[in-house]
Amino acid sequence: MERPASNPQRPRIPLTQLARGQRATLESGCMAGLPEHDQCLLRAMGVHEHCELRVCKPGEPCIIQVERTKVGLSGPVANQLMVTPCDGSGAC
């Protein structure tokens, strides 16, 4: 199973800095700021490394969509999730 390669040119920013409707990907180590059990739960809910997400609602709570799943994240969690925004053309 091939993983999408991470893009070193694009900066990593906290999820909380994305605007409504913006898309991003989670790269390896993107959850390092979260406790291990929170990382495991997020992965099990579908929010795992290399997935593409869309911000449905920024702020508190931050609501993201991964595939068909919507996940609500309280501020402290969203702030610890580092994402790589997709470019203006929508490419990730």
């Binding site: 919507k70 996940v71 609500g72 994240l73 309280s74």
Partner: peptide
Amino acid sequence: ARPMMLELPP
């Protein structure tokens, strides 16, 4: 309290 992470069902 542990910060919330919750699936929002349709």
